[in-house]
Amino acid sequence: MAGNDGKSKLSFLPTGSKLHKISALLTLLLLILAFSFTSTAFLTVNNGLTVLLQTSVIGLLAIGMTMVIITGGIDLSVGSVLALAGVAAGLVIKAGVPVIPAMALGIMAGAACGFVNGLVITKMRITPFVATLGMMMIARGIALQLTGAAPISRLGEAFGTLGNGTFFRVVEMQDNGFPKVIFAGIPYPAVLLIIMAIIGAFLLQKRQIGRHIFSVGSNEEAARLSGVNVDRTKIWAYTASGALAGLAGMVLMSRLVTVQPNEGVMYELDAIAASVIGGASLMGGVGSISGSMIGSFIIGVLRNGLNMAGTSAFIQQIIIGIVVIGAVYIDQFRNKK
């Protein structure tokens, strides 16, 4: 996606954002290099696939989050919406609906939450922070109320396919009768993430809605005076974020083959961190899907590498916090020049 022929593609973005993306990519490569020294098991195909799988949920959330952040807003509700979407899908499966329509319904539930966010922000003129904070509690509350805070399990094998299935899995039967996995296969969630990221980047760069998302975040009043339907653009962005949160919920719950109503807590913060590390500005008008994907993988690789090096979960939080502050600091430094 990134400026493949060097002209006109991304050129309406500030030139500095390419710089930021390159520095983020370098950080990612450095991290991979460093972790491959701390653990021999890190730089293996299998672990690479694991990182892909683990990052896909945050990556999906980060796509929607990036769109919202570019409009100058924020979506704190995605973690809760993810859980509510999972609960919606789980409940209708229990009621006898087949898996695919049930998952579609889960995604729609997520989109509906995002749509409500958009309405509250544009029509009631509530700031995005407060509106989505409210939705964070409402969606979580509904998810817990509907399930009595208990997980929904025994959803059938088909429910687990999206999260656990793989392409190109190679298994060989050994002489002793046990199968040996030669290539674990590319996980469905990773492929899904790549597809959604390409769609997201296409919408942002090549379609009118993307142009309007940038303009609203850059100068909302100018966008309005130029004839951009600001409310519609914002509602679109929050709805997309909600739908992607729903999709991420399907992936996560499917991986667990269980619906956990208390899953996804604080995921919004990872998604925001991924966007910001990838160069999105919380002031709006700046950001890219490719950057956010790099940001997601920086977080994913950090988590995975630190785990393999035996670092405690608490230390991991500290380190990721420092990385976020560092990324924003570098960004400011670049903008001052």
């Binding site: 050129s11 309406f12 973005l13 500030p14 142009r211 940038f214 303009s215 975040g217 850059s218 100068n219 009043e221 100018a222 966008a223 005076l225 130029s226 004839g227 951009v228 008008g285 700046v286």
Partner: peptide, 14 residues
């Protein structure tokens, strides 16, 4: 009433 992050063409046709 220009969007600062966009270029001339994007603003003209906004």
């Amino acid at each position: 009433a220009l969007a600062n992050h966009l270029d001339a063409a994007a603003n003209l046709f906004l």
